[in-house]
């Protein structure tokens, strides 16, 4: 389990003043959980993720993994942390090297983390991962440009899964995807969490998307967690004014559900 306690990070601004990007943030991601973090731009969510990835050093507070301080991890323990916590970013076109084939992208982590594995085993594992995320293994020698946005995001997920992480940190993973395609990625993430026990830390601005995936949701505003609640509690009885504003801003669709006769049947055959 990952535990963030009292995390604080200030950035210097012009002159002597500074701005608190994170101001005493507590957050827990238990094994196998799906934890949502909602925040608008400037909320500090990116800084929090950068601290989690050790790209940024917090001023105070701590991040621990199974009780060990992440900031003090060195050598093999650090490599282990980097393997256990994988990240999927918003824009798969920016995060996937365009000159590498799908196979190279997916197996890179296995090589880096020195999994003792023959090339043949590795290839078999690549194919298995591609199938797992709903891609055709026969396309393993293509490059990212020949895939759609949703497919690219699934390549990024296969790449993250290749090293068997315990936690998948998702930073707005569907914000850049078209509606008909984002459902492919959301369903895949939901399945991996519910069936395979992969923990998710899912960061997004879209409340409905977070609600679809997460059991517990924290609302981050100006570097502070203003509310943390279970999914149902957050939407039925939000406590913070800010949470209420966010929920009120979601377009009202309550009366706009398709009538039963007009839904897309047969849905089962359409699953990817």
């Amino acid at each position: 389990m990952i535990e963030v306690t009292g995390l604080t990070k200030h950035f210097r601004t012009r002159g002597a003043s500074s701005v608190a990007a994170l101001d005493g943030v507590d957050l827990r991601v238990p094994d196998g959980a799906a934890v949502g973090l909602v925040g608008e731009s400037g909320s500090g969510k990116s800084t929090l993720l950068r601290c989690l990835m050790r790209l940024e050093q917090a001023d105070s507070g701590s991040i621990t993994v199974d009780g060990a301080d992440v900031a003090r991890l060195r050598g093999r323990a650090l490599a282990g942390y980097r393997r256990d916590v994988q990240t999927v970013f918003q824009d798969p076109m920016a995060s996937l090297n365009p000159r590498m084939t799908v196979r190279q992208l997916v197996e890179e982590g296995m090589i880096v983390h020195r999994r003792r594995m023959s090339a043949q085993r590795r290839l078999a594992r690549v194919d298995e991962l591609l199938e797992r995320v709903g891609l055709d293994p026969a396309h393993r020698d293509r490059r990212p440009a020949s895939f759609s946005g949703g497919q690219r995001q699934r390549i990024a997920i296969a790449r993250a899964l290749a090293v068997e992480p315990r936690v998948l940190v998702c930073d707005e993973p569907v914000a850049a995807l078209d509606v008909s395609i984002q459902a492919q990625v959301l369903n895949l993430l939901a399945d991996m969490n519910r069936n395979d026990g992969l923990a998710l830390l899912f960061v997004a601005h879209d409340l409905a998307v977070v609600r679809y995936l997460c059991d517990e949701i924290s609302v981050l505003r100006q570097g502070r967690i203003v509310e943390r609640a279970t999914r149902d509690a957050l939407f039925t009885s939000p406590q913070a004014d800010y949470t209420r504003e966010l929920i009120a801003a979601v377009p009202d669709q309550a009366e706009l559900r398709p009538a039963a006769d007009y839904t897309l049947t047969p849905t089962e055959t359409l699953e990817v």
Binding site: G150, V179, N187, V209, Y212, V250, L264
Partner: peptide
């Protein structure tokens, strides 16, 4: 249109928990 239906069924909503319909392909 089946595409319109697919589009509407693919959007996560606050008022129900149905599994999203994901249109295959692109």
């Amino acid at each position: 249109h089946p595409y319109t239906r697919g589009l509407l069924a693919a959007v996560p909503r606050l008022d129900h928990d149905d599994r999203l319909v994901s249109l295959p392909g692109a």
